[in-house]
Design a protein around this nucleic acid. Structure first.
Lengths: 345, 345
DNA sequence: TTGAAAGCGCTAACAG
DNA sequence: CTGTTAGCGCTTTCAA
C-alpha cells in the first residue's frame, strides 16, 4: 500500500510549466497568472497531487505543529481542556501532536521526542516537570506553556488558578459550618496543585483555630479516592468533612460514603471538591467546589503560546487566575453551626 | 526565540568526522566504530544536537505518525479510547496527530490536512464519513481504521460492536420486564451506530409484539438528552422505559427524571444505556447498559492499523464484536411483570 | 568502517 | 509573471 507519491515535478510536467510554478500555486501569497494557475490546478487534480507538508516544513523551518502533553484523560476536566485547546489551535492552522506522560517515569524520553519533532510550541496539561526538564525544553528555544501546574522556573509560561486561595476558602468554610474533624483527600502528592491546595487548606483551618484532622492520598484518581475514603472511615475517629483536591475524587468519595458506608452527604459528612467539571453540577452529585476559570485558562494559555511563537523575545508569564466557590448541596447549609452527628461504619 | 538549529554537520565538524558518520550514530542499525561513536556523542552532547525528524521523514518517506480523528471528547467513552489507543501507538514509537471533526461540516478540509501531513495511518473514533470521503483517503493509499462507526465502503477497516444485537436485547428485555411504553432516546440521527441500535431495538420490541412508543433526539450529548427527556414527559402519554443510544444520554435522562421530574428509576421508568463507560457503574447511576468490549476494540483496531501499515496488501476488515448486557439497578427486577404505575409531570 | 556525493519534495531568491 | 538555481537536514549508495 505504498503510495506512488506524486510530486510537484509530476504536476509541472503534465501542466507544461516549471516545478516552481506549481509550488507557487499552492502557496498562499503566490503571484501566478490565471492561465498558469488553471493549467496547474487541472493537472494537480488529475494526478491527485497534494503538497508534501514535510518537505515544506523542512525548508520553511516551520512545522506549524504544537505538541500537547497530558498526564491522563481520566479526569473529564482535562479532556475538556484538551478538546477546547486543540480545536483552537486547529482553527489557527496548527497541527497537534499528542503525547501522554508515561505512568512511571520515562518522561525525559517524551521530552526528547517533542524536541526532535520540531514543534513550534508545547502545551502541557497538568504536567509536573522538574527544573532541569523545564530548562532542557526552554533552552532549546521552544515556547512552553503549562496549564494547571507550577514549576520553579521562570523561563516557562504557566497558567493556573489560585489553588492556595481555593484551599484556604475550603478549610475556613468547612470550619465555619461547624465541622471540627476536617480531612484532606490529597491528589498526586508531588504535584504543585496538590501542595498549594493543601497549604491553603491548612491555613484556612488555622484561621479558624483548627488543624487538619486526617489525610489520605487519592492521586487524583477515582479508584484511589474510593480506597482513601474507606481508610478515612476505618479509623477510630473518622472525619465529618472532606476537602478533596479535585472533583473526580470528591465524587468518588461521595459515592463511597453514600452507597458503601451508608453515610449521608452533607448531613453526616460535607464534601468540597476542586475544578468544577461539568459533572459536578449534575444533580446526583451537586458538589460544592472551587470553580477553575477554565475558559479563561485556555484562552490565556493559547494566547500566551501563540504570542511566544510569533513574537521574538516575548517574555514568559506566570498567571494565577481566581477561583470561585460554587455552593451546592454537598456541604451543609451555613448558619446551623454546632457539632455533627457521628455515624460509624 | 529562533533556535539556531544545530545540524549533524555542526556535530561532524566538532567531532572531526564526516556528516554521514554522525547520521549513522543516530541510526538504529548503524555500523560505527566505538571510537567515532564516542567522539560524535560527546560533540552532540556538547552542542545539544537533536536529529531533525522532519528531514529524516523526508528522506525515509516514513513519518512514523498516525492521525487520530475524533468527533468530541464530551463522552468519556471516547476519551478513554483515545488515551488507550494513543498510549499504545506511542509505545510502538509512533507520533500521534490529533484532529477534531469540526462541528458543522468542513470535514473534507480536515481529511485533506491529514493526507498532506503524510501520516502512515488514520484512526477514526466515531467519525461518520460518506463513501466519497472514505475513498479519497483510501485511494491515497493511507490505511484507515474506523472505530465505532460504519461506512459503506469495504476499502476501509472498521471495528465496531454488535449495535443491532444490543438494540434488540434492550427492546426485548424492557418488554419482558412488563414495560409497554418504551421509548428510544436517539443519538446523532445520521450515525450508523444510532441507526443500528435503533433498528435492533425496534425489532426487539416487535419480537414481543410492541412498537417504539416515542422517540426524541439527544445527539449523544448530555444537555440535548436532558431536553429530550423533558419532551418525552411533556407528552400526554409519557414512556415508562427508555432505551438510550449511549450511556451519557442515559445518565442525563436519569438525572432529569429523578431530580427534575420527580420520578423514580427504575420504579417509574426503566433506563438502559449503551457503552458501559466507567461512570455507568458508579453506584449513583448504576446503569443497566450494553457493554462494548472496549479493550478488545482498541486491540483489534490498533492491530489492524499496524498490520496494514507494515504489510503491503493486507486487506481491510470489518469486525463486529459482541456486546454484553450489564444488569444493574436502572431497570426493574425481572419477574415482576405487569403494567407500570404512571406518574405525570 | 568511513567519507563523498546524490538526492527526498519543496520554497525562495534571482534573473529573465 | 516565470524558470533556473540553490539548498533545508538528513539517509543512503558507492568507493576508498
Amino acid at each position: 500500500m505504498k503510495r506512488k507519491s506524486i510530486t510537484s515535478r509530476d504536476v509541472a510536467k503534465l501542466a507544461g510549466v516549471s516545478q516552481s510554478a506549481v509550488s507557487r500555486c499552492f502557496s498562499p501569497h503566490a503571484k501566478v497568472s490565471q492561465r498558469t494557475r488553471e493549467k496547474v490546478m487541472a493537472a494537480a487534480r488529475e494526478l491527485g497531487y497534494r503538497p508534501n507538508t514535510i518537505a515544506r516544513s523542512l525548508i520553511t523551518r516551520s512545522s506549524r505543529t504544537i505538541a500537547v502533553v497530558t498526564y491522563s484523560l481520566e479526569n473529564p476536566f482535562y479532556s475538556f481542556v484538551l478538546e477546547r485547546a486543540s480545536r483552537f489551535f486547529q482553527q489557527q492552522g496548527y497541527h497537534l501532536l499528542l503525547f501522554f506522560a508515561p505512568p512511571n517515569g520515562g518522561f525525559d524520553a517524551v521530552l526528547d521526542e517533542i524536541i526532535q519533532s520540531q514543534v513550534e510550541g508545547v502545551l502541557m496539561l497538568a504536567i509536573t516537570l522538574d527544573g532541569e526538564q523545564a530548562s532542557v525544553v526552554a533552552d532549546f528555544g521552544i515556547p512552553v506553556v503549562i496549564i494547571n501546574r507550577t514549576v520553579n522556573y521562570t523561563g516557562i509560561s504557566q497558567v493556573g488558578s489560585d489553588n492556595y486561595a481555593g484551599g484556604f476558602w475550603a478549610g475556613s468554610y468547612l470550619a465555619s459550618l461547624g465541622h471540627r474533624r476536617i480531612a484532606f483527600l490529597a491528589g498526586l502528592p508531588d504535584s504543585s496543585t496538590n501542595r498549594q491546595r493543601h497549604d491553603g487548606f491548612v491555613e484556612g483551618l488555622k484561621s479558624q483555630g483548627l488543624t487538619c484532622h486526617s489525610l489520605e492520598v487519592g492521586n487524583y484518581r477515582y479508584e484511589d479516592a474510593c480506597h482513601a475514603t474507606r481508610r478515612f472511615f476505618a479509623a477510630p475517629s473518622p472525619p465529618d468533612a472532606i476537602f478533596s483536591a479535585n472533583d473526580l475524587m470528591a465524587i468518588a468519595s461521595m459515592e463511597t460514603l453514600r452507597h458503601e458506608l451508608g453515610l449521608t452527604v452533607p448531613d453526616d459528612v460535607s464534601v468540597i471538591g476542586f475544578d468544577d467539571m461539568p459533572m459536578a453540577a449534575w444533580p446526583s452529585h451537586s458538589l460544592t467546589t472551587l470553580k477553575q476559570p477554565v475558559d479563561l485558562m485556555i484562552m490565556k494559555a493559547t494566547e500566551l503560546l501563540l504570542e511566544q511563537i510569533n513574537e521574538t523575545e516575548s517574555t514568559p508569564q506566570q498567571l494565577t487566575l481566581p477561583v470561585t466557590p460554587m455552593l451546592r448541596n454537598s456541604t451543609r447549609r451555613p448558619g446551623r453551626g454546632g457539632a455533627s452527628g457521628q455515624t460509624s461504619n
